[in-house]
Nucleic acid binder design. Structure first.
Lengths: 114, 114
DNA sequence: CCACGATATTAGCATTGCCTTATATAAGCT
DNA sequence: AGCTTATATAAGGCAATGCTAATATCGTGG
């Protein structure tokens, strides 16, 4: 399942937003989502499974709790796909500045990976 | 329909990629998509409608042709949503440099809009 | 005006996705 | 061991989505 399919669901987006700020136990996420979307624990658990299976979240067992944290790597692909459209809103010199920053970053990665 | 729902479909993503490089007549898009996905003209036309109705593409009539071009604004929202996750892959000083560039951009926009 | 080429629309169908209810699993307490 | 809490899984219903086939619309040239 492509990352974009995962992001198509508002509940999953909300869960990812929460996980972006740090790890959370399943129960906390259930409570949060129930407040905002009014769906059952089961439904939330199913969304968490989708996030796990698509590599967007991982889980750690802590006694009876399952503590979820984000795995952002797939989102990076989304970000990369989006790159080709940025020039439509990052106009003029600003876009050039961003490109320079991105180039520097890329070179830094390559030298540290190689 | 949220932009993320639109982007969930690979055919629509492919169409947007093509439109990112410039406008194209419906027929060209149909040919391109048919080569790569093997679906009918009708199916492609339906995807084009979804793109129109969600504000991601607009159409200009040129004789018997419909010439499509991209409207990237909704993608900017996607980009903005993604912003909160960038720190997971834009680490260290690079992230700071990007933030500075984004800040400059934002101030420039505000002064030109205000 | 008619036929053709380009494109859109409609109807119908199969598949998928998300939800609920009910049930299973597992840990910790008493 | 039995109960409770925390979480996951299974089964089934229903609505949404994406496709095809068929048909409609609309320019344009003869």
């Amino acid at each position: 399942m492509h990352a974009f399919d995962i992001l198509g669901d508002p509940v999953r987006r909300r869960i990812l937003e929460a996980l972006a700020e740090g790890e959370h136990a399943s129960g906390d996420i259930v409570a949060l989502v129930q407040r905002e979307f009014g769906i059952t624990q089961s439904a939330v658990s199913q969304h968490l499974r989708v996030l796990r299976e698509s590599g967007l979240a991982s889980v750690r067992i802590d006694g009876p709790r399952r503590v979820y944290s984000i795995d952002a790597a797939p989102l990076r692909e989304v970000d990369a796909w989006l790159a080709r459209f940025r020039r439509f809103w990052e106009h003029r010199l600003d876009a050039l500045a961003t490109e320079i920053a991105r180039g520097k970053r890329k070179r830094a990665r390559e030298s540290e990976e190689g």
